[in-house]
Design a protein around this nucleic acid. Structure first.
Lengths: 209, 209, 209, 209
DNA sequence: CATGAATGAGGTTTCATTCAT
DNA sequence: TATGAATGAAACCTCATTCAT
């Protein structure tokens, strides 16, 4: 991956035609597949194009460079998880804290589980140059919803809730990531959920008091 | 016209002369420095050698390939953190749970803080091929000591303690990592420690009951 | 940071466009030329590419590694010689032994003479890793045709004919190679042919009796 | 193998002391061993020195460069074979031609057999830059003795005998080399000798008439 | 004399990206 | 628009040779 002087990371064009949309989608899917089957190290633009059934040239019509490709994948994945979290939070305003915690954890964990493989592959590329920015956006969106939810349940200061949300989100993410990375059997996933609930209940009770 | 090599990750030779000991250390230090200043992506063997003030050839006399270089850094870092954790655990057998939790958290967090920059850089390269193995070893060593400590404080089943240790270690690591990655001001570090203590106390009380 | 490759010696892709057919041929020719002008020792992929008027990258689009390049040249050369031998043998079934011997020798020698320089350069690279396999194939093809021919002229056991063919083929090859290596003036070539005829006639008469 | 501007191929010093002689011998032996065990491709000066139990520096005290090392080995090997041939020839002056032929063949083949492995390894390095010169010397010495021998048995012109000797020597060498290279079982060696005798008798009878 | 650490040119190979067809 | 051949900078790694100790 060469370092382009001024990287452009947005898709080059907004597809409006039928064919373009299909092509973009095929490239997206191919990227995920190559990521899963070959790993980030072996992911080359030519390989992705081949898997997508198009030529490299075509790939570059829609993504100005390799990074934008990976960004697109990462962005969509994070977006899906954030969506789940936001929905769960919005649906549980004014509920008891215990309910909120469970809903938040389940939403996050289930979203990750649904794309477990993709998620695993993406942990790695997220570290690459400037992937942080996307992760940051993802975190902001999620935290905003989480904070909003907990504010309907607790008189604690916004600042306090904000840090607690940030902190808990990070801890939860770390636990899930590690379980995924060390091999996630159904039994282990089950225990993970249990302990997340336990952790969440215990933590938020302390944190909001 | 090369011949098929087999990747070896151990240092290539044990220095016998005075000079080479200094060289190997210089290369190690240079690796850390380049990692910090340029990032893993921009870390090349030539750059490391230059920074160390030696030629590439010399580098390859001591490290058979680029990976072994990164391994050495990762290994030493993880070893130091594990050492700190193990020491803290051994020193707190038969203490109250609250004391144990605080000791564990502080040991881990302080070890990480001491090499915060290095730690940050290493999160990224650990994902690389087989870095997992080192991380796995690190986790095993740490968990063994943690489990041994908590067994002196609780009649809970070993299996339960083991999972709790694994889970908490992962959550704590995730929280710390995220704080490091999002910029760790002293104030934030302070809050982090507080909330880790809170999280730890709340979680272990639940988990061991 | 490379991943463990597995050596492949077959050409990498089949050209579909007009342009690439020309390119692959240019690279092939350049390889022969560099081999002749610089010797196998000085043959580098960059040099070959330059001589071919393309970039190294292009070279590697068609030949997966340096060896495959040399293989291609060796294979074509050996193929041509084998073709000549096979044709000569097939055309002389049921002829007198003297005729057979002369035909065989002339076919082999003339095929070698036609590409004398190439042949000379190839003697050297054939020794390289696994070049043996190609030479072995070449020998098998040739010997099969030779044995088939002599069986139409002699009641000797197949086993006897087979060894005689192998032995004579080797002796003939050695004599020709040495003459080529020590400088082959037309006069010397003339004598060589004469003595090969003499040797062949004398040997096969003994061997088949 | 870099190309030194003005290669010096003679051993750097003539060893007179005890230790030096032993060292030179050890290096020589190590070279052969490395050649056999690792092949010419993997033969490095450091490896040879290690196998010899000395440092590279010491190696370079006795051999000015890598080529001179290989030359020494090649030279000694060829010398031994030439010695055997010369002795056999000198011992068979004025014998019947059949006796001469058998003696010559047996001397050559046995000398090669005695160092079959070394011989095989050396075929390859002899092709390297300027190995030809040594081979040429070897051939000259051998041919001189062969010609001298046959002149005591035949009134044929010197020129005729000379070419016949050259030609036969080459054919014999080629046959032996090929057998060695294709795997020389005792049975195959036995047949080889038989057919060499047959070839030799038949050829020289024709050639001297 | 011996040692072996250091050198660095040079070789092979990859892959993001461009552009003529 | 799509194609895929071509590019070439840049990375990794080797190894003959030197020279301070």
């Amino acid at each position: 991956m060469k370092a382009p002087p001024q990287p452009v990371l947005q898709p080059r064009k907004t597809p409006v035609q039928q064919r373009s949309t299909a092509t973009v989608e095929a490239i997206y899917e191919a990227t995920v597949q190559v990521l899963l089957s070959s790993g980030a190290e072996r992911l080359t633009t030519v390989r992705v194009a081949q898997r997508a059934g198009v030529s490299v040239g075509t790939l570059y019509q829609y993504y100005p460079n390799k990074q934008s490709l990976l960004f697109a994948v990462l962005e969509r994945h994070l977006g899906q998880v954030a969506d789940a979290v936001v929905r769960a939070c919005q649906a549980n305003h004014h509920q008891p804290v215990a309910t909120m915690v469970t809903a938040l954890i389940d939403a996050f964990l289930d979203a990750k589980l649904k794309k477990r493989e993709t998620s695993l592959a993406l942990y790695r590329i997220a570290s690459d140059l400037d992937g942080d920015r996307l992760v940051e956006n993802f975190r902001k969106r999620s935290l905003k919803a989480i904070v909003a939810m907990f504010r309907t349940a607790s008189p604690a200061s916004t600042e306090r809730i904000e840090f607690a949300a940030f902190f808990f989100f990070a801890a939860m993410g770390g636990a899930i990531r590690t379980v995924f990375e060390t091999g996630a059997s159904p039994a282990k996933i089950h225990k993970l959920r249990e302990h997340l609930h336990m952790l969440g209940a215990a933590y938020w009770t302390s944190a909001l008091s």
